[in-house]
Design a binder for these strands. Structure first.
Length: 525
RNA sequence: CGCGGAGUAGAGCAGUCCGGUAGCUCGUCGGGCUCAUAACCCGGAGGUCAUGUGGUUCAAAUCCCAUCUCCGCAACCA
């Protein structure tokens, strides 16, 4: 048997402090599309996602809710997992930083780094809010008051462990120079290099003693491991790295092919994470894709602005694939995307209902009407065939090339260009006119065959973005092969097979009615 | 002068690396078709490609320079 090439892809783990909004969900959806794409290419994909469950904020929220931190994160992690499932995220492993294997691995890692002198004890100084028990940095504390409660801050310090970042700085610089594609988009790399690496790295605080909800430091239990050493290591502990070594899975999948993250946590992935790995003597990830944010209207989504859009609400209104399609098609590669209900409806109606769904419906309907639902043998030709085939080829190439570069919306657009071309082909060839002339029957057969074949290719190319609908399309054609390879070659659809009845893939949405419905719902909240 | 990115039709974007008819989607106006989900197809209008009567060139959205505007980053909230 062939030995399939491994592909390890991760999302950032979601902070389990509350229910994720639509902006938080681009990360897993984008990663899922890539994971499905790589699977369709025949890779042995391991797709990991999960939750980050420690820290002061969670401890405070749990206290406020009158539950233990563990109870609190159990609830939120469940919620996050439910939403991931609702979105069809095809993860292979869901890691929680409260999982016991993760905890013990992090503890071992901490001790190792301490023993080899990369971690040392010092004082952490910052602006402290007594009631909230929280530290703030100079930039955060500019106003002089606590960001949570608004009370005045005072200068405070506590004992803490630090990681010697400077020790690895040159090695990291060299790695980044030698691997310019390590982080995409490129502008992000420059930001990090110029703002952090060139001026010289400061050491990173890796423990805290002002709160307790974290992974205890074995040799000094009044300290808990502080965020990044805990959170980032999930990428290897999820594969079974126990702090000393990994098992079979680790050997197979590490280093990661890509970490999909939001642009807000680039620094941690491009600087701290590689340095931790260097200190552990483990290989560095191959690529980091830092995607932009999905904004609500023109603003960042936040509860105080009252513009938060939740994925489960969206799914209820627009379906799973409607939401996935919107996120993937509307987010540019390097600049922020926006989401409004109006735009979701526009994209849904224009692309999914009118262009794609209607194409499928009219093609199946004609197959039924003119050929009794049997895939006809293409025995004639029209002057439009070659252009249609060329478009199918271009759609395939455009899809694959853009997906490889993580240009997800461009990849989708390339696919839809085939759907648009196929709709045009119907008008050009006017099958209803051909059907009136018995002599034209071979030509009619060709037209219908070509349309069905285009739909098949569309079905295959859409499995990564809108898997449920893609499957419906392929099922209606009686096609099982979803490999990318099967869409590369035109004409693979077998003649003589039976196709299903015409159906509505995406029902058109009445914009006015839907918006009113949503407004009423939000008012009732 | 902190660093980086961006400014292209009413909106959202591609094209810029490798100079040579300004392109896509949506919207809008007009027409066509009837297989189809009031869907689909065609055509029109709409852009001095931020500014500079800048530079290089036979030729600049594309390369160089200056200016203006917007956005991101500038160290431990994830």
């Amino acid at each position: 048997m062939e030995n399939k090439k491994a592909f390890y892809i991760t999302t950032a783990i979601a902070y389990a402090s509350g229910k994720p909004h639509i902006g938080n969900v681009y990360d897993p959806v984008a990663a899922d599309a890539v994971a499905r794409f790589k699977r369709s290419q025949g890779y042995d994909v391991f797709f990991c996602t999960g939750t980050d469950e420690h820290g002061q904020k969670i401890e405070n929220k749990a206290t406020a809710a009158g539950v233990t931190p563990q109870q609190f994160v159990d609830g939120v992690a469940g919620q996050i997992k439910d939403i991931w499932d609702m979105l069809g995220i095809s993860y292979d492993h869901f890691i929680r930083t409260t999982d016991s294997y993760h905890i013990s691995a992090v503890q071992k890692i901490f001790e190792r780094l301490l023993a080899q002198g990369d971690i040392y004890k010092d004082k952490y100084e910052g602006w402290y809010c007594e009631p909230c028990e929280s530290f703030f940095t100079d930039t955060q504390a500019e106003s002089g008051v606590c960001l949570d409660c608004g009370r005045p801050l005072r200068r405070e310090h506590e004992e803490a462990y630090f990681f010697k970042m400077s020790k690895y700085q040159d090695r990291l610089m060299k790695y980044i120079d030698e691997n310019p594609d390590f982080i995409i988009p490129d502008s992000r790399r420059k930001e990090m290099v110029n703002n952090f690496l060139k001026p010289g790295l400061q050491d990173l605080c890796v423990s805290r003693s002002s709160f307790t909800w974290g992974i205890p430091v074995l040799s000094d239990p009044k300290h808990v491991t502080y965020v990044w050493l805990d959170a980032l290591t999930n990428y290897i502990t999820a594969l079974g790295f126990d702090g000393e070594q990994g098992g079979e899975k680790y050997a197979k999948y590490w280093p990661a092919d890509v970490h999909i993250i939001g642009k807000d946590i680039i620094r941690f992935h491009m600087i701290y994470w590689p340095i931790f790995l260097m200190a552990l003597g483990e290989p560095l990830p191959k690529k980091i894709f830092a995607h932009p944010w999905m904004l609500s209207g023109m603003d960042k989504m936040s509860k105080s602005r009252g513009n938060v859009v939740y994925p489960d609400d969206l799914i209820r209104h627009f379906g799973l694939d409607g939401v996935r399609y919107y996120l993937l098609s509307e987010m540019p590669f390097a600049s922020d995307g926006t989401i409004t209900y109006e735009n979701v409806i526009l994209r849904y109606n224009n692309d999914l209902a009118n262009t794609l769904g209607n194409l499928v419906a009219r093609t199946l309907s004609m197959t039924k009407k003119y050929f009794g639902g049997v895939i006809p043998s293409p025995e004639g030709t029209t002057e439009f065939d070659e252009d249609l085939k060329a478009t199918a080829k271009a759609a395939y190439d455009g899809y694959v090339n853009n997906m490889e570069e993580y240009h997800l919306s461009d990849a989708l657009d390339a696919v839809f260009s085939l759907a648009r071309r196929a709709n045009k082909y119907i008008d050009e060839t006017a099958p209803w006119a051909l059907a009136k002339d018995e002599e034209k029957r071979p030509v009619l057969a060709t037209v219908i065959y070509n349309l069905l074949e285009c739909i098949r290719i569309l079905g295959v190319l859409l499995t990564s973005a809108i898997p449920t609908s893609a499957e419906k399309i392929l099922a209606s054609l009686g096609v099982n092969d979803q490999t990318l390879e099967s869409a590369k070659e035109y004409g693979k659809l077998a003649v003589g097979g039976e196709v299903g009845e015409s159906f509505v893939l995406f029902a058109r949405i009445d914009s006015q009615k839907k918006l009113a419905e949503i407004e009423a719902e939000n008012a009732a909240k």
